[in-house]
């Protein structure tokens, strides 16, 4: 990779890609309404844009099974409506409305058999990374990017591989993923994402003070993070999901060739096709069964 530092405007110009959880299944269960939440977030975005004229904000909405760009401060500022300043949040709300109605139909048709109301985090993460990659390649100078996940829905174990891949590519690009988890359970995905990429993970206790959390922790530009006391995570949930049933597991079987994870013993790796030997557990089973037959 070419030297990143030489292509930056200056130390504290940042590009913030915000992944906004709009999953209706989550928002029907929370203590604060979505509109209250949104007002905190909009104020935060305004603040980020206000900090530096060159700062850039991109918002990606994450629905239950969909995701889409809903706001990009760099493109709207060129529109003739004269929205160089945060009047532009009108357009954000409009796009968000479009997004919600568009995917309302889709989500109605689907059946939620497993009962996990997760959001499509992997999709929005990859969209964010694509956007950042485009910024890296586009021109000579670019702002310093970072990703912020505002997530409330629980993890979707079926997205494990996709999310992990996104996390590792973010790590390679040296893009930190900050995460702010506002749901009830803990999100192992987000904890790992922030841990691996060097971002900040935090679960705010009081959601009515969300703006204060957001500005105090997540508005800090990467340059200043070097000398500011930031929230340190207590522990990280490193649990992985198995590839066969998409369940989060503590202990399992790993393919020695491709490192796929399984919760049960298989004869053949479903990912790379290598044939496994008998597991010790099975061998002892057979031995114990042998006298019976």
């Amino acid at each position: 990779m070419p030297s990143v530092a030489s292509k930056l405007y200056s130390d504290d110009v940042s590009l913030l890609v915000l992944l906004l959880d709009t999953n209706p299944l989550f928002w029907s269960t929370t203590s604060i309404t979505f509109s209250q939440f949104l007002s905190h977030v909009l104020a935060f975005l305004n603040a980020v844009l206000g900090l530096n004229q060159l700062n850039q904000v991109v918002v990606i909405a994450t629905g239950h099974s969909s995701c889409d760009y809903i706001y990009d401060s760099s493109s709207t500022s060129n529109e003739s409506s004269g929205t160089g300043l945060p009047v532009l949040f009108g357009s954000l709300l409009e796009k968000l409305g479009d997004f919600v109605t568009k995917y309302e139909q889709l989500s109605k048709e689907e059946e939620f058999e497993n009962g996990i109301a997760s959001s499509l985090l992997s999709g929005s993460l990859s969209m964010a990374l694509c956007y950042i990659q485009r910024v890296f390649r586009s021109g000579h100078l670019h702002p310093q990017p970072r990703i912020l996940c505002l997530q409330g829905s629980p993890d979707g174990p079926e997205q494990y591989v996709a999310v992990m891949n996104s996390i590792f590519s973010a790590q390679r690009l040296m893009v930190p993923i900050d995460s702010c988890y506002i749901g009830i359970q803990n999100s192992a995905f987000l904890q790992q994402a922030s841990y691996i990429t060097g971002g900040v993970h935090h679960t705010p206790k009081q959601l009515d003070g969300l703006f204060q959390y957001l500005t105090t922790i997540y508005a800090t530009d990467l340059h200043s993070r070097g000398f500011v006391q930031l929230h340190k995570p207590v522990g990280v949930d490193f649990r992985a999901s198995c590839f066969c049933h998409k369940k989060a597991i503590d202990m399992g079987y790993i393919c020695s060739v491709c490192l796929s994870i399984f919760c049960k013993h298989h004869k053949k790796c479903s990912t790379c096709g290598s044939i496994f030997g008998q597991s010790k557990l099975d061998v002892s089973d057979k031995k114990s069964k042998a006298p019976d037959t």
Binding site: A219, D221, V228
Partner: peptide, 21 residues
């Protein structure tokens, strides 16, 4: 106010935001 906020050193900007409310 906005222009002055932008002219501040990064750390000072952070303090102002943090103490805004």
């Amino acid at each position: 106010c906005e222009a002055i906020l932008r002219s501040l050193p990064p750390l000072a900007k952070k303090y102002v935001l943090q103490m805004l409310y």
